[in-house]
């Protein structure tokens, strides 16, 4: 992983600009994408699909957030300062590399992924809560929905894989 997040902790202040928040978010997605991409050749082929799907999904989020940040007309808003919620630390922590061992199995990968998505979901949800109505709140709500959606998808995969049921 690159050095970009080593200074991430420093950026945690009581208030952040929207631009900063988006940056952390983008970083969050990027590290995850890289992590899964690195993992692809390491896992057994039979569960590789899972890691590949996760990498793809993170790439999609990464693209989405980058596009948001650079969207013309948002220059004004991105400078807005936003109260950062308590969940911020957990969220930022998730940027760090997980310990999944050499050859993680599907369950470990899924559990890790679920944890990440959960942290992101909580983070955006809290941000939306602490923001006044307006386009920024809507943005956070949108992000929260995205992450919730992804987490729900993963949960289904998790239960279908692990609780194969009927046995």
């Amino acid at each position: 992983m690159s050095e970009g997040h080593s200074s991430g902790y420093d950026r945690l202040k009581s208030k952040k600009s929207l631009a900063e928040i988006l940056e952390v978010a983008i970083e969050f997605e990027r590290t995850a994408r890289d992590f899964y991409t690195d993992l692809i050749p390491k896992v057994s082929k039979q569960i590789r699909y899972l890691v590949e799907e996760l990498a793809e999904e993170e790439q999609r989020h990464f693209d989405l957030f980058s596009e948001l940040k650079n969207r013309p007309g948002l220059e004004q808003q991105v400078q807005t300062l936003v109260e950062i919620p308590a969940s911020d630390k957990k969220f930022s922590d998730a940027i760090h590399l997980p310990e999944l061992g050499d050859r993680p199995d599907d369950q470990s990968v899924l559990q890790y992924a679920l944890g990440r998505e959960h942290a992101a979901m909580e983070q955006y949800h809290a941000l939306a809560q602490s923001t006044e109505d307006g386009p920024i709140k809507e943005l956070f709500q949108f992000l929260a929905n995205e992450e919730t959606e992804h987490k729900n998808q993963l949960e289904k995969v998790y239960y279908e894989t692990i609780h194969s049921g009927g046995v």
């Binding site: 057994s44 082929k45 039979q46 569960i47 590789r48 699909y49 899972l50 599907d106 894989t161």
Partner: peptide, 10 residues
């Protein structure tokens, strides 16, 4: 394992 095709873990 590497030679064979897999479909969602199976």
């Amino acid at each position: 394992t590497e030679i064979l095709d897999w479909q969602r873990g199976r």
